Simulated scan of single mutants.
Amino acid sequence: LTYGGLVFNAKLKGEKVEIVLDQVLLFLKENSIVNFYYKPIPDFYLQRGNQDLDFFLFKRGAVLERKEMNLAINLELPLQISKSKLKHFRRIENLDLDIVEEHDFQPFWEKVLGPRLLEKFNVKPVHTKEEIALLKQNFPDNIKQYSVYQNDEIIAGITIFETKDVVKSQYGATSQKGEQVRALDFLFINLIHKYKRKGKRFFDMGIVNEENESGYHSGLLNQKEELGCSVYNQDFYKIEIK
């Protein structure tokens, strides 16, 4: 969830943005920085256009280094959840699953997220449970944990990062038992409807890139598209400081 760019008043005009950028590049040059990498925040996070900086970087020799596919749902449009997802969702509704908004991240981190990431990808969550708890403490209205329980056992969960207009599923995982009953889909669909009712503009489900020949995880792409996502490209720029 890390982006880069300039932070400035929404009323700042393009010509002044250009001046600010030149001062940044001058500072980097004076401090012997060779390359400047820029990852712009996706447009759907912004209430107004913000591509003037991209243009000024291009005019100064910035090159598009790579792209990633970022999947998101435009909640202002009719939802496009696939028929198969909705069919399973209606079946799952009868399985006595409980969705709980939790303030303690330990159950999800220790019983679902950590073990599944280790099992499937041999990695750990980017945040430790202590770090995510500290973020929650500092931003109580922006970070939320939703978990699915069956017979008092946690079987799936999604960690939400929420802004004024956008909600992002930062972490999502399910146990083997949760996988069997499609608990993660059940939770996603409930949250999609919840945040649409709340008036959020977008539901960001993150990237699907993978280091393989095609450059993306086809199963993950299909999963997110069936939940109603569309592709919003994430660009990465590089400029040599001369």
Rank of each mutant, 00 (worst) to 15 (best):
G199W: 06
D204R: 03
N222R: 12
F203E: 03
Q180I: 11
V181Q: 02
E210P: 09
E162S: 09
C229W: 06
L220T: 02
G206C: 09
S230P: 08
H217S: 13
Q176G: 13
L191F: 12
E210K: 15
G215T: 07
H217I: 11
S175L: 10
F186R: 06
N222E: 14
T163K: 08
E226K: 15
K200S: 01
K177H: 11
E225R: 04
E179G: 15
L227R: 09
V208H: 02
L227Q: 09
K200F: 04
A183G: 00
F161S: 10
T159A: 10
N212D: 07
S214L: 15
D165W: 10
I160S: 00
E210V: 12
K198Y: 07
E225C: 11
I192W: 01
K196R: 11
H193V: 11
C229A: 10
F186H: 07
K224V: 04
E225H: 08
V208D: 09
G228H: 08
L191D: 10
L220Y: 10
L191T: 10
F188K: 05
Q176V: 13
I158Y: 10
E226L: 13
G172R: 03
V167L: 02
D204I: 00
I189Q: 04
R182N: 14
K194G: 04
K196V: 05
S169F: 07
L220N: 09
N190M: 06
Q180Y: 12
E225M: 14
I160L: 13
K224Y: 08
L227E: 06
I189Y: 06
K194T: 11
Q176M: 12
G172L: 10
N190K: 14
V166T: 08
A173P: 02
E225V: 13
V167Q: 01
A183R: 01
R201S: 12
S169M: 09
H193K: 14
C229Q: 06
I189G: 02
H193L: 12
G215W: 08
Y216Q: 09
Y171Q: 05
R182W: 10
K168R: 11
N209Y: 12
M205E: 06
S214Q: 15
E211M: 15
N222T: 14
T159Y: 05
L191K: 10
G215M: 07
S169I: 05
G172Y: 05
V181H: 01
E210H: 13
R201M: 07
N222P: 00
G199Q: 00
I189S: 01
I207E: 10
V166C: 03
Q170S: 10
I189C: 00
Q223N: 11
V181N: 01
N190G: 06
F203C: 09
N209Q: 14
G199K: 05
Y171R: 05
Y171H: 08
N222H: 13
G157E: 06
Y216L: 10
Y216I: 09
T159M: 11
Q180V: 12
E210M: 15
V208Y: 07
